[in-house]
Design a protein around this nucleic acid. Sequence first.
DNA 1: ATCTTTTTGTTCGATTTCAAATTAATAACA
DNA 2: TGTTATTAATTTGAAATCGAACAAAAAGAT
Lengths: 152, 152
Amino acid sequence: MKQQKRTKKDSLGLMSFTALLRSANIISNEVHKNLGANNLTVSQFGILEALHKIGPMYQRDLAAQILKTTGNITTVIDNLEKRELVQRIREMKDRRYFQVVLTPEGAKLIKKIYPTHVRRVDQVMDKLTKGEQEELKQLCDKLEQKESAKQD
Amino acid sequence: MKQQKRTKKDSLGLMSFTALLRSANIISNEVHKNLGANNLTVSQFGILEALHKIGPMYQRDLAAQILKTTGNITTVIDNLEKRELVQRIREMKDRRYFQVVLTPEGAKLIKKIYPTHVRRVDQVMDKLTKGEQEELKQLCDKLEQKESAKQD
DNA sequence: ATCTTTTTGTTCGATTTCAAATTAATAACA
DNA sequence: TGTTATTAATTTGAAATCGAACAAAAAGAT
């Protein structure tokens, strides 16, 4: 009963698109699967990472950083604040903004787990050679350009 | 007040990892952003796409296909079944399995929207040349191998 | 100054999602 | 046969997530 479909071959675009999404999904799961040990979600970790590497940020910028909606950032920050890993500080100049900063505990946590995270990432990416990693990065960066920015 | 951090430079692994996840996220949003017009979620679309291209499948295999848990598949199929786009058919040989099949309406819907989807994907991926798309696919495929398959 | 628009963050309702526990069916095997 | 283990799907409870509507603050226009 296995009906042989007239397999219209997938376009190269579709195949590369699918491969991109699949690998990103798989790699992300591999890297993040042990975040639960510290009771962190991927988004929460992303926030801590951004604050760790960039410093205090507005919620708006955090949303752009981890590619989520501002509505989502609100709840993620809420939960991090409940655990006292970050703190909101109202901006005086423009009172619409909150600066989000790491608390000492938050800083301590991310400092503790970040090196392991980086090691895991390197380990996973080492399935590719350095040259291939460089190539992959170039291609992904190029894919990010706005649609209108295409020239041919 | 922008405090200059002693920027320990990111490893190539981390940079390529970040680029991969970012671009996958952005590209996925670009491609899927108009699914709402047909009241479909990304997962629902993924199910319809798989059934369209591969034919009837067990829930277990659908989960593997769209990289979600079987628990999640249950609710996604529930919702598709409510709209009568798919149907569960109990497998006779082994009654633990359900075959999920497209209903005529489901088949009609996916046939209608799939060409547009493919066109969008090709359009988005055309930010890369054919050669680059091929290269990207190769690299992503290579990344998917199980960790144990590494030799060093 | 007052009205309008834009921007930031919050809230709300609905859905997705997961992990863990559970149920049902089958397989393995003594 | 009966017991145990495995597997497929469901349920449950919690959290993430989105889009849309909303409030507060600031900026701009006249």
